[in-house]
Design a protein around this nucleic acid. Structure first.
Lengths: 215, 215
DNA sequence: GTCTATAGTCCGATAGAC
DNA sequence: GTCTATCGGACTATAGAC
């Protein structure tokens, strides 16, 4: 194995992502984490100060480049001469996630599950994460959707956006289990991230457009 | 307060639901749980044998009546002279959940969050829950959807059903946080379960129908 | 920066009196 | 069926040698 030698800090971040994705915050012990990373238990507090800070920095390192890219793509959609489309807006939201998931060594399903698990965190931790990483982003995307669907009231947009986010997070969180959720269900090829992303985007856009309360 | 006196076992089940919804399995300690329930710590092992069995029975007591009702409604949809509709099938899946959530004392958001949290459980526990409570159900609903949308291949149905379930679970899990996910988002009236259910069903049906891979 | 050793706390489970 | 008391172990965090 000619892998690049990684320092302790980086190894901790990588194993933290995997363990968090598989077991959640409370379910991950620092002992099991440092054992799997091949580093000393005390290294967590030396490099990060606490278990919580380790997880926070792991999440931050993953989500901030994605959110930067989301904003960049959204700005591009909004800068055009025409009104934005739902497809353009939701592509800006989804494509950066699946770009990261489509790693060089095959689909990074751990990463998807980690992202999807965040929203079932305990209330306080989730609230802090949301304020730090999603509040502004959420507002920007809502404003863009109002432009894309000008006939809908803000409340109507809020409802449909809520379901759209629920679909995205639910799909990310359950993605790893695709092939065994139902024993007798056809196997889904969940390794092609581009196809998964496009299917998800099409589902969300269609749901959004067709979700009028009274049929 | 003229409440009916409840026995220890029932109080444990109720507090277990609340704590599981708010903190998850690993995040719930038996001491905090028994304190909140006003019962002795040892009562958990006397009545249920273990923390795990307590949570399992809590979930079973909640989901089994719902699944019975789901099957009943699905059978009704399938017994008609005409082919089932997507709306009928997804109503059979969703309405029993929101019927329970629409409790006599207002919306039972704890219950919704508990259901939505289950799918982010650790792999092993989730797998066992799925085998026990969802495997057969899932197969039955998939078969019904194939009848409702006969032009779609089984693989195509499986993809779209996956996203539909993701939407449902994501919406249940995040429902409690509706009003503070975005500070500047219009407040959603998340207390009318019938309206929430209908909106969710319409979103899912529209997403399902419009989720073709190639536009 | 890495290690050993351990403090101090909390955990699930259970024995045994009542 | 409920209680006290406690076991044995796991946890996070840290002190201090190297």
């Amino acid at each position: 194995m000619l892998e690049t030698v990684q320092d302790t800090r980086q190894r901790l971040l990588e194993v933290a992502e995997q363990f968090y994705a598989e077991r959640g915050f409370e379910g991950t012990s620092l002992r099991s984490l440092t054992d799997a990373a091949g580093v000393n238990l005390a290294a967590v507090n030396y490099h990060f100060g606490s278990k919580r800070n380790l997880m926070w920095e792991m999440f931050s390192a993953r989500i901030e480049p994605i959110n930067t890219q989301r904003m960049f793509l959204l700005d591009k959609v909004l800068a055009g001469p025409e009104l934005p489309t739902l497809e353009g807006v939701f592509d800006a939201l989804l494509v950066p996630v699946f770009d990261v998931a489509q790693g060089p060594n095959g689909a990074n399903l751990i990463f998807l599950r980690m992202i999807g698990r965040v929203f079932s965190e305990s209330e306080e931790f989730w609230h802090q994460l949301h304020n730090q990483f999603f509040d502004v982003l959420c507002r920007r995307f809502l404003d863009a959707i109002v432009l894309a669907e000008p006939k809908l009231s803000p409340e109507e947009v809020a409802w449909r956006f809520h379901f759209s986010i629920a679909t995205m997070l639910g799909a990310l969180g359950t993605h790893k289990s695709l092939n065994r959720n139902c024993a007798s269900v056809p196997t889904l090829n969940g390794n092609d991230m581009d196809e998964t992303c496009l299917r998800l985007r099409n589902f969300i856009c269609a749901g959004f457009r067709g979700a009028q309360l009274k049929p």
